[in-house]
Design a protein around this nucleic acid. Structure first.
Lengths: 290, 290
DNA sequence: CATGATATCTGACTAAAGTCAGACATCATG
DNA sequence: CATGATGTCTGACTTTAGTCAGATATCATG
C-alpha cells in the first residue's frame, strides 16, 4: 500500500503534530518557548552558556536576552566561568528548580499518558528506542570506560541476557571464562561503551593476555541500535586501541547461533582458526593480525 | 538503565530535533514555514480553505493572509466553492505545482537519506509504522467499504499472509471458504476497514448467510496498530452494523494459533460452541446473541 | 424575504524569534 | 605587553506568527 518513503513521511507527519502538542503544553506556564527551553537545558545540567546556545542553535544576542529574562524572573543566576572569565555559567535558583520541576512534571505526564493509551508497552518502547537511536546516530559516541562502571555493567548484563535467549542451552556467565576487569583496562586492554545521549547502546572489550595475542570479548549492540553499523564502529575502535597498545595479534571466539557476528568478522579481515580455548560456549574462532 | 518514561522522553528529544531539521530544510526555499505548509496542504489535495485552516490549526485572519501571499507569488488560485459561494477553494497554478514538487523532493530526499543510513530497513519501518499509528490513534476512522475496494483487498492480502506465517501448515485461501463479496455488502453483510491517515490498518467482515445467523470473518489488525485496542473497536462496529441489519445471531470461527483473537472474543461476550462448518483451518468456534 | 449563522477578508494590533553591527572584557600567543 | 581571537552583551532593527474586532457576502430557515 505504501512505499518506504511514504511510510517515513507518514511517520514525520504524525510526529510533527505530536511535537507541536508538546510545545503547546509548555506554553501553559506563561513563558515563551525559547525561555522555557533555556530553563530546561540548564535544569538538565547544561550550565555553560555557549554549550546551551550551541545545543539550542540560538544566536548569541537572543541567548543573552533569554538568559536576562530568566534572571529577571529570579529563576537563574549567572556567573563567570571559573577557568575563563569570558564565558558564563548559569545555575538554577531555588525558584528556578521549582519551575524546572514543573516542566519535568509536564513532560513526564505527557510521556505517561502516551504509554497508558497503549496496551503493548514493550513493543512501543522498543520501537521508540530504535527510532531514537537511528535519529541520533551522528551523536553516538564511543567512550573508553572502566569495565566495572555502571554503563559497562549494564551492557554486560544485557549481553548475557541476550546470549541466554539465543543459545539453545541458555547461558551461564559463571561457566564462561569471564575476563578479569583489569585485563580490560589500560595498559593490558580496554573496554569501550557506545553511548547515545545518556543511554549505553553497545560495548566491546579488549582483553590482554600473556600468550602473545589479545582477545576481543563482549561485543554487543543493543537491539534498538542494530542496523546503524555500530558493531563495525566498535570493532574499529577496539582495533585502534589495540594498535595503540602495541598489540599485533587479535583473537576472538563466537557462536554460530550469532550469525550476524560471524558475518561482521568475516567481512572485516578476520580469518577463521581452530579452537584456541576450552570455553564451553563458543564454536567459532577467529584471528586478525594488525 | 532507563525507565519507560525516560525512554519516551529520549524519543521525544530525538524527534524534536529531527522535526526542527526538517522545518529548516523547508525554509531553504525562501518562504516562511506557514506559507510553505499551506502550499503543501493544497498540493496534497486539500483544496477547501476551511479544511486547510482546520488541519493546520490557523486563525482565519492568518490563513487569509497566507493564501494572499501565495496568490501574489502566482503559486495558487482561489475561487468560490461551487456549492457554497461563502467558501473558497484553492488550487495550484502551474508554478505552484512546480514549487510543490520541489518541496516534495526535499521531503522525499530527507526520508530516503534517513532510510539509507540504516541497514535494517524492515525493522526501522515497522517501528515507524507502529509509532505513527500510536500517535495518530484518535484520528483512526472505521469506514464501511466494498470488500473489493483497494483498501479492503490490501487488508485481506496482509491477513492471508499473516495466517500463512502463523499456521504451522501455512494458509491457502483457496482451501478456505472465501466469502463471496456480495455476502459482505449491504444489505446481506458489511465490510469495515480501519484507516489511519490514508493507510488501511485493520478490517473485519460481516458475512450474511441463509442459516439464521451471520458470520464475522477476516478480523485483522496490522502489526503496527496492535496495542491500540483496534480489534475491539472493529468488533464493536461490526456488531453495531449487524444490529442495524436486523441480525440477531453471530457466529465466527478462529484458530488456537491466534490466541489474541480468542482472548478478545471470550472477553466480549462470545461463547464457545461446537464446530459449525467443515473449513479445514479453524479449530475454535464462537457464537454471540445480539 | 427577513434573520441569524457561516466563511472569508481587512485593519490594527502584539508577541516572539531572529539578525546584525559594534562594544567590551578576557584570553592565548609571540 | 601588544595583538588578534573569543565569548558575551546591547541597541536597533526585521520577520513571522498570532490575535481580535469588525466588514462583507452568502447560505439555510421559517
Amino acid at each position: 500500500m505504501l512505499d518506504p518513503v511514504s511510510r517515513v513521511r507518514r511517520f514525520n507527519r504524525a510526529v510533527t503534530s505530536a511535537v507541536g502538542a508538546l510545545d503547546t503544553s509548555f506554553l501553559g506556564r506563561g513563558r515563551p518557548l525559547g525561555a522555557a527551553r533555556v530553563l530546561n537545558a540548564i535544569g538538565h545540567g547544561r550550565s555553560d552558556v555557549a554549550e546551551i546556545r550551541d545545543y539550542l542553535g540560538l544566536d548569541s544576542g537572543l541567548m543573552s536576552r533569554l538568559l536576562r529574562s530568566l534572571e529577571d524572573d529570579g529563576l537563574i543566576e549567572t556567573a563567570a566561568h571559573e577557568d575563563d572569565a569570558r564565558r558564563r555559567v548559569a545555575t538554577l535558583t531555588r525558584a528556578g528548580r521549582r519551575e524546572f520541576a514543573a516542566y519535568e512534571a509536564l513532560s513526564n505526564a505527557q510521556a505517561e499518558g502516551f504509554l497508558a493509551q497503549h496496551s503493548q508497552r514493550g513493543a512501543l518502547l522498543a520501537a521508540m528506542d530504535l527510532i531514537a537511536s537511528a535519529l541520533t546516530r551522528e551523536r553516538i559516541t564511543l567512550d573508553e570506560m572502566d569495565p566495572r562502571s555502571e554503563q559497562a555493567r549494564y551492557c554486560l548484563g544485557e549481553y548475557y541476557a541476550e546470549l541466554g535467549r539465543r543459545f539453545k542451552q541458555g547461558f551461564d556467565v559463571s561457566l564462561s571464562r569471564d575476563p578479569d576487569a583489569k585485563d580490560m583496562r589500560r595498559p593490558r586492554g580496554s573496554f569501550i561503551v557506545a553511548m547515545s545521549d545518556t543511554l549505553p547502546i553497545g560495548c566491546v572489550g579488549l582483553k590482554g593476555t600473556d600468550h602473545g595475542y589479545a582477545e576481543i570479548k563482549r561485543l554487543w549492540v543493543a537491539p534498538a541500535a542494530r542496523g546503524l553499523r555500530l558493531g563495525r564502529r566498535l570493532m574499529d575502535a577496539t582495533e585502534a586501541a589495540a594498535r595503540e597498545l602495541g598489540i599485533a595479534l587479535l583473537r576472538l571466539d563466537t557462536n554460530s547461533a550469532l550469525p550476524e557476528a560471524g558475518r561482521l568478522y568475516r567481512s572485516t579481515g578476520w580469518r577463521e582458526i581452530p579452537r584456541f580455548n576450552d570455553d564451553p560456549y563458543p564454536d567459532l574462532f577467529f584471528e586478525k593480525r594488525l
